[in-house]
Amino acid sequence: MSYLPDERQIYVSGRLWHEIYPKVNLSPFIHALHEGINLTKYGEGLNKFYFNFLVVLPKSKVLEPYAYYSRKKKEADISVKIPYNLMLNASEDEAIKLMEEAYLKGIDKLKTFSLKNTFDIDGFKKDVKSIFAKEKWYELAVAA
């Protein structure tokens, strides 16, 4: 597993109901996106991208998805919910697919911020998609 500096551009975390772990495997996302993405390539509008997978019990009312952007710091913080039952019944590969979809949805949420002329959101999304398109990328990312 590659060395991960505390200070980086891409942060991936989870807020998870404890019984769903370790099916929600954050490590491949943390490492592959840190290794494969350089935000400066897409413009100056975003220095840091914080993403949070939210997988909580269906009736839970405590934690909700969110999306924040700090124009001053050029940082986005986005949380996307994955339906608990879908994750519960998913195989390991299906769980990764659900997480990939959630991450790409999170990138789309960047379009709600005023980044139009300062950050190429579509370019960012395209590069993330190409990381996810590689065969068994999530196994390679952790093995590296």
Binding site: D6, Y11, R15, Y50
Partner: peptide
């Protein structure tokens, strides 16, 4: 944490890096 407690851990700043938040 409580509902509406949005101020807690913004940007996954939990007080240390490389931590995951589990609801128990």
């Amino acid at each position: 944490t409580r509902k509406g407690d949005k101020g807690r851990y913004p940007k996954r700043d939990y007080g240390a890096p490389n931590l995951t938040f589990f609801i128990e």
